[in-house]
Simulated assay, not measured.
Amino acid sequence: MSETMWALTYDREKDPWESTVGLVKREVERPTIDEGKDPRDRAGVLVQPIMTGFCGSDRGIWFRTAFKDMIFKSLERDRKSTRVVGHELLGRVVDLGPDARRTFGLEVGDIVSTESHIICGACYQCRAGDTNVCADDKIIGISEDGCFAELVKLPAKNLWRTDITKIRPEVAAVQEPFGNAVHACTKVNLRGKRVAIFGCGSIGLFVVAIARALGATSVIGVEPSEENAEMARRLGADVVLRPNTGRSERPHASDPELTERLRALTDGVGVDVALEMSGFNSSVNNAIRATRRGGDVILFGLKSGDAVIEDFDRVIVNGLTLHGVVGRRIFETWHITRHLLESRSPNIHDLIWEVILNRGEGTVFDFKDYDTATFQEAISKHPKVILRY
Rank of each mutant, 00 (worst) to 15 (best):
Ser2Lys: 09
Glu3Pro: 02
Met5Leu: 07
Thr9Ile: 04
Tyr10Lys: 12
Asp11Trp: 15
Glu13Met: 11
Asp15Tyr: 15
Pro16Ile: 01
Glu18Arg: 15
Glu27Asn: 15
Glu29Gln: 14
Ile33Thr: 10
Asp38Lys: 08
Arg40Cys: 08
Asp41Ser: 07
Ala43Lys: 10
Ala43Gly: 14
Gly44Glu: 12
Val47Glu: 01
Val47Trp: 14
Thr52Ser: 13
Gly53Met: 12
Gly56Leu: 09
Ser57His: 06
Asp58Gln: 09
Gly60His: 10
Trp62Ile: 04
Ala66Thr: 03
Phe67Arg: 03
Lys68Ala: 01
Met70Leu: 06
Ile71His: 11
Ile71Arg: 14
Ser74Arg: 06
Leu75Gln: 13
Glu76Pro: 00
Val84Trp: 03
Glu88His: 15
Gly91Ala: 05
Val93Met: 04
Gly97Asn: 05
Arg102Asn: 10
Glu107Phe: 01
Val108Arg: 15
Ile111Arg: 14
Glu115Phe: 01
His117Lys: 14
Ile118His: 05
Gly121Arg: 06
Gly129Val: 02
Asp130Ile: 08
Val133Tyr: 01
Asp137Lys: 08
Ile139Thr: 09
Gly141Asn: 10
Ile142Asn: 04
Ser143Asn: 05
Gly146Phe: 12
Gly146Thr: 12
Phe148Arg: 15
Ala149Leu: 12
Leu154His: 09
Leu154Lys: 12
Thr162Gln: 04
Val188Cys: 08
Arg191Gly: 06
Gly192Ser: 12
Val195Tyr: 10
Ala196Thr: 14
Ile197Asn: 05
Gly199Ser: 08
Cys200Pro: 03
Ile203Trp: 08
Ile210Cys: 09
Arg212Ile: 05
Ala216Glu: 10
Val222Tyr: 00
Val222Leu: 04
Glu227Met: 09
Arg233Val: 11
Arg234Asp: 12
Leu241Trp: 05
Leu241Met: 08
Arg242Cys: 11
Pro243Trp: 00
Ser248Glu: 06
Pro251Phe: 07
Pro256His: 08
Glu257Phe: 04
Thr259Ser: 03
Leu262Lys: 05
Ala264Trp: 00
Gly270Glu: 11
Val271Lys: 14
Leu275Asn: 11
Leu275Phe: 02
Ser278Asp: 14
Phe280Cys: 05
Asn281Thr: 06
Asn285Glu: 15
Arg293Tyr: 05
Arg293Thr: 13
Val297Pro: 00
Ile298Tyr: 06
Ile298Val: 15
Gly301Trp: 13
Gly301Ser: 03
Val308Cys: 04
Asn318Arg: 05
Leu320Arg: 03
Leu322Asn: 12
Gly324Asn: 12
Phe331Ala: 07
Thr333Met: 08
His335Ser: 08
Thr337Leu: 00
Arg338Cys: 01
Arg338Trp: 02
Leu341Val: 00
Ile348Ala: 10
Ile348Thr: 12
Asp350Lys: 08
Val355Arg: 00
Glu361Phe: 02
Glu361Lys: 01
Lys368Gln: 05
Tyr370His: 07
Asp371Gly: 11
Ala373Tyr: 01
Lys384Ile: 04
Leu387Lys: 15
